[in-house]
Nucleic acid binder design. Structure first.
Lengths: 147, 147
DNA sequence: TATTGTTATACTCTATAACTATA
DNA sequence: TATAGTTATAGAGTATAACAATA
């Protein structure tokens, strides 16, 4: 059985974290979804469909997101050599640089939220959030955005 | 000092919680923002500007959100008796009913995420998230969506 | 036939600017 | 003058449907 208190705390803290991410993104003219795309591509290439699955959006929406980021020079597209139907998406040097700066901003912006916890509490919190994550995150290069 | 591990766990769990909320909302033809509006109005009336401040959106965006919810019969508007410039927004009986059902859905959808934790761990988690919340939540009827 | 990605279309969400009504 | 709210406008994000290219 799950108590309402945990659920409420999770939901409210999530809205707060999302608020921070939204604001940092907006400060760089990036939506929350684009922020995630950049984060995913930070250490790998990915296909359009895989990105769409992971983010839980339609592939047509993904096309638009990539279009706009590509127009800004943050993202590039390559025809996949293995499957000529597929398109590999990747960060340009400018995209990589921006992503790095934004992630530093996110950590800085979230710092006040975690400042109230000492090192041990932070470790405990990270540990308790782990089982919540494993219910969706898995191995493999990218996982669908299911629950 | 804040470790990257906590921040990463917070961000990732938040995206997962948002994913659940987005899916539950979509299943009821409601955006995340509209879900929040209904949640806020569940136990109080609120003015347009206060809602906008709390959600971190412009008042003109708020007007549109309210318009669409009103058109669906979920929300009503009243001219405030105290200040005739202001508009009080509230849930209709249909809106209240829908909100109740949706919140039950959200708890059910989030249940698998918290199932891995026993009662004591859940309590600990809620407690550790508390300091994160207090950095933004406060007393008063509604608080702006700042960090 | 099935899959990958794009395009066309329509609607929601969002902010900015201009406006009305009230304070 | 300042504040509360709406409307007009424009752009991003989203899904559905139809399409071309490839498997």
């Amino acid at each position: 059985m799950t108590s309402d208190a945990v659920v409420d705390a999770l939901v409210r803290s999530s809205f707060q974290v999302m608020g921070v991410l939204t604001r940092v993104g907006a400060g760089n003219d990036l939506s929350l979804t684009q922020l995630r795309v950049l984060g995913i591509l930070r250490d790998r290439r990915a296909r359009v469909t895989d990105l769409a699955l992971f983010l839980g959006v339609d592939k047509s929406s993904m096309s638009g997101l990539i279009d706009r980021a590509e127009r800004r020079g943050l993202i590039g597209r390559d025809k996949s050599p293995e499957d000529r139907r597929a398109t590999d998406v990747f960060l340009t040097p400018a995209g990589l640089e921006l992503t790095g700066r934004i992630y530093a901003e996110v950590r800085a912006a979230l710092e006040p939220s975690t400042r109230g916890l000492d090192a041990e509490q932070q470790q405990t919190l990270a540990g308790l959030l782990e089982p919540i994550l494993i219910s969706s995150a898995g191995p493999g290069p990218l996982k669908p955005g299911g629950d």
